[in-house]
Design a protein around this nucleic acid. Structure first.
Lengths: 132, 132
DNA sequence: CGGGATCCTCTGCGATACTG
DNA sequence: CAGTATCGCAGAGGATCCCG
């Protein structure tokens, strides 16, 4: 519970922010949701190719977890060779706007952040590193 | 570049989503920003106590990185015993609404996700696990 | 083609002890 | 009080091989 604010916030391990972070804090989930939101329906190899630097294992694992949580729909076509298509569920689509908000924030402010970080490092080098 | 969509999206390692994820995908950054957004100005030990299950090391590291990127302002008071206060910068505050959007999405949909996951696991147990 | 199963590496993070 | 320094580990994620 908050002391200073009247708003209701708790920070325990079941608070919504932590839940969202636990679910989507991994390396690939959000990226795949964003990709599917733009491309609609994609095959396994198309996703792999578009992202480029994801391993087959992690693509499999991430897609399976997204499917398991009902965020992505997997369609298997038992042809030869087999074909599998992935697309966002309604639940998955409902997340997209928020991802794009974050993405837009990043486009606007990430340069500033990187500059800040650079200046901070330079400042640290001038001050410290002289004491040995 | 997208083929099917007319919108501009790229998925390379410099795309904004990845940058945001690289920056805030860790375990504590977003949580601390959210906490400071509610409490305004907090001392080191107040943050530690409120969160509860963060180690001193990770609190130090996370606060330092947030300060380095200009998201958090650190004020040091050379008293005895020393006192340090942290608060969000304007840049940090500009991120808060988006975090709360995500948090709200989590409150609305996380139960569904967990149910989906549970059902998926049960389905897997019925089907697989018989083939050896 | 779309994975499963292994093995291995790297690192984020926690636990502990010490300091100005 | 607010850190710093060091050690150690679990687990995320990559590389490789295999299979229907």
């Amino acid at each position: 519970m908050s002391r200073k604010s009247g708003q209701n916030i708790w920070i325990g391990s079941t608070c919504p922010i932590r839940q969202v972070l636990d679910r989507f804090g991994d390396k690939w989930s959000i990226l795949i949701v964003e990709l599917l939101s733009h491309e609609g329906k994609l095959r396994f190899s198309e996703i792999a190719h578009t992202i480029g630097d994801i391993s087959q294992k992690m693509l499999t694992v991430t897609l399976r977890s997204l499917e398991s949580d009902g965020l992505v729909i997997r369609q298997f076509f038992p042809e030869i060779p087999p074909r599998v298509e992935y697309e966002l569920s309604e639940l998955g689509k409902s997340l997209v706007p928020h991802i794009q908000q974050l993405s837009a924030w990043g486009q606007t402010h990430m340069d500033t952040i990187l500059e800040n970080r650079k200046r901070f490092e330079e400042k640290q080098q001038k001050q410290g590193k002289t004491a040995y």
